[in-house]
Amino acid sequence: MAHRYLLFAELPYAFEIMRPLQDAARARGDDVCWFLNGPSPSFLRAGERQLRLIQEVEQFDPHAVLVPGNEVPPFFPGLKVQVFHGFGIEKKGHFRIRGMFDLFCTFGPLTTKPFRELASQHGWFRVVETGWPKVDPLFREPTVEEKNDDRHILYAPTFSPSLTSAPALAGTIADIVARRDWRWTLKFHPKMADEFAAPLRAIQSDKFHISTDSSLLPLLKEADVMLTDTSSAAAEFMLLHKPVIAFRNRAPGPHLLNLNEPGQLEAALETLLEGDDPTREAREHYAQAMHPYHDGRSSERILDAVEDMLRNGYGELKRKPLSPLRRLKYRRALR
């Protein structure tokens, strides 16, 4: 039986997360549509179908709505499936239950165990460990090693004012760029405030590039070291067996090189870029616990979990909370 899937996107990074799901669903002969609550339709590619109105969603009548964000219109038809927008388990709210989803598709043991405990507590949703669809291409598309002596740093700060490293590190990075031959790529979070981004945008050098591509995965493959803070991109980078420097990480550990002062940055970069990696063993253990699936088939496992729930029903699950305020919020926003 062919199924109908609605991909619900509220931020540009949703496309990179859900396109592997779209590909997997289409390979099964399923029908896929997008609903964009925020991103411009220009993000859609040729052949991708957009539904613009609530009435169009009701007519499409999806079997399931796949969501990488925290919320979904409760009145949309179909099973509501949380596929998550990042590995940021350290961030406030990652394990918050908002009463909107029937199925949580988790990455690995670090997320599965807490969500299963929450499922037992609340009783209205299921949890299936599947892996994360965004990283399927990391394992399906081999990384081409460039024969290049340049050392390449990817700087991927988060946006939250309380967590972002951008204000503290901008001056230090500018100084390092001016003196060292290392190549830099900066990837801003789409929610980064202009006041934090401006000092970094002011850095002028042919060794310093600001990526405007919506896709992060190619940048992960190209870089030798990642510099970040409490961004979930760190875990994505670790899946490629590469080291991470974090500035004032909220949950520091031996799997990353955590710094507390800007003055420590240059020495830390030099250590890792020269191949001295004290975090390697702990990083491998962390990456395995976060996302143990290296076959590039997380999307297929998510669809299998959805189909199983559609086939077997909700069973002993209780009804979800009615969420009247969220219903009203989306009714007003989407009318």
Rank of each mutant, 00 (worst) to 15 (best):
A170H: 05
L163G: 02
L169Y: 02
P157K: 07
L163V: 03
T158H: 09
S165N: 11
I173P: 08
F125I: 10
E146A: 10
R179T: 12
E141I: 11
D136T: 08
P109S: 01
R151E: 10
V135C: 05
K113Q: 07
H152L: 05
K147A: 11
R151P: 04
N148V: 03
A170V: 05
P109H: 03
I173M: 10
K113W: 04
A168L: 06
G123W: 08
S162G: 11
H122C: 13
A174C: 07
F125W: 09
V127E: 05
T164Y: 01
T164P: 12
F139N: 09
Q121T: 14
W124H: 14
A174H: 09
L169P: 11
R151Q: 15
P167I: 01
L169Q: 12
L163Q: 11
V135W: 00
D136G: 13
D175M: 08
H152R: 14
R126W: 08
P142L: 00
Q121E: 09
E129Q: 11
L169I: 05
P137G: 05
D150I: 01
L169G: 09
R151I: 14
I176D: 06
W124R: 15
V127M: 13
R126A: 09
S160F: 01
W132A: 00
R179G: 07
T143V: 02
T172I: 02
Q121R: 13
Y155S: 12
A156T: 11
G123H: 09
A174K: 06
T164S: 08
S120Y: 07
V127A: 08
F159K: 08
K134F: 10
T164C: 06
T111M: 03
R116F: 00
P142F: 07
P133M: 00
E117I: 04
R179L: 04
